[in-house]
Design a protein around this nucleic acid. Sequence first.
DNA 1: AGGCCGAACCAATTTGCAACTGGTTCGGTG
DNA 2: CACCGAACCAGTTGCAAATTGGTTCGGCCT
Lengths: 255, 255
Amino acid sequence: MAHPDPLPDSSNFALGRLRALLEGGSFDKEQRLPSERVLAAQIGIGRRALRRALEVLEAEGRIWRHQGKGTFLGPRPPEHPSDVEDLSRRTNPLEVMDVRLEIEPALARLAALRASNGDIERLLHLADKTASMSDADGRELWDSALHRAIAEVAGNSLLLAIFDMIDRIRQDATWRLLRERARSGARQQVYVDQHRRVIAAIAQREAHAAEQAMREHLELVRDGLLKVMTSPLPDGKDPQQAIPENTEDQRLHGT
Amino acid sequence: MAHPDPLPDSSNFALGRLRALLEGGSFDKEQRLPSERVLAAQIGIGRRALRRALEVLEAEGRIWRHQGKGTFLGPRPPEHPSDVEDLSRRTNPLEVMDVRLEIEPALARLAALRASNGDIERLLHLADKTASMSDADGRELWDSALHRAIAEVAGNSLLLAIFDMIDRIRQDATWRLLRERARSGARQQVYVDQHRRVIAAIAQREAHAAEQAMREHLELVRDGLLKVMTSPLPDGKDPQQAIPENTEDQRLHGT
DNA sequence: AGGCCGAACCAATTTGCAACTGGTTCGGTG
DNA sequence: CACCGAACCAGTTGCAAATTGGTTCGGCCT
């Protein structure tokens, strides 16, 4: 009886009954099955026996179940991964920077190709705002607004949505402390200059220059982040405590 | 009095009063202002006058407002763009394919570097399932599950989240018809072969081959999409009606 | 003892409703 | 004419109730 294949239905009446329903394509062609309580009553068996049969079908990949939702036909759909809280727990700042280095230079290049004069005025205004902020919190807000404005100007709605997802993770409170330290001191002025260089390239419609300027900017941001993460704090605190475990470098194109 | 600068408060008592509050950094250092009704009562003016003053402040970028939420200091945050319905209305299949061509080859390469034997078994099982489906709906489901499994194996949580966003848009009902046509006929068998080639490269840990195989697969999918979109239907229907206006080719790296 | 059923409870999700917010219109007042 | 008060519309949030799968328990039958 130690048969490795769980298919024989001989030992289970409910399983055969369920398979018949599934193959029959019932349920109004919807993917959702009735609730376990209803289904058990329909077949005329107990809920415990029904669940044992459903476990088999789920293991075979014919159905998938989720607490609070129901039981459905077909392969299990992806979990909703856009929750910023969950996601910012699973990823880490270096992953984020690698993806930003992949996305934002392309956005800057597209922005250079499509920016109107009004767009450029708006970017300059945001750059001024960013530079004029005195507190770290204000800098973060306006810096984010500037980078997003560039993404808007690029005119690719899907890339903009991807940027927004990354940006929301970036602004998560967990990493605020880390980024404030990476942004502190003389680095801030360099960032301001780099912002202006990106916008200047966009204003002159030099796509490649804009792409390169953005890449240099983000590489400096990443380098600052790396230094903060790997070097100990002057007062002795351990910076690693704020960083999830997965810190390996994952280049996207370095075949 | 056609002064271009909207700053003079002389004509408006409420505006000066509001500016004083904003500069004073009140409101418990929170970004949220009291509701219009409360704020109007505090200042001692009517709601209509208050709103006129708030319009000026909003145009200057000092505050932003949203119905149902409230009035806040600082730059306007990005609208939540992860709603699949809104997003699939704004983007188009070609934008999606361009981004997929940017993301998924990288995922295949990473998957080749990190796949365990169990992962590879799972990918093969999904490929078999995809190939065995007889109806278009089933093919779509299992094809999506296969591509996502590769993204899972890649092990970069942020890229996985980005893939999921794209995939949810891809599965939107609006484009179902279009993709079914692009997938029809002999093309289906080629897709099956390409899937197996990608998985074979992953199984042999050949990162570059996996990346290239995935790129070729997606390029063929995009070409099929292009043909369907640009050529008229045999029965005379206009395929353009299902496609938003923004159909220009937006390469991400073709400087 | 083992298998099954009914019932109850837990936990995650969806749904519906009430409260609140900005957006708008209307009539009244000085 | 500018302003106010009030009412209503529309979008958002928060919370409680209902629903669902996940789990445990006691009782019944073979």
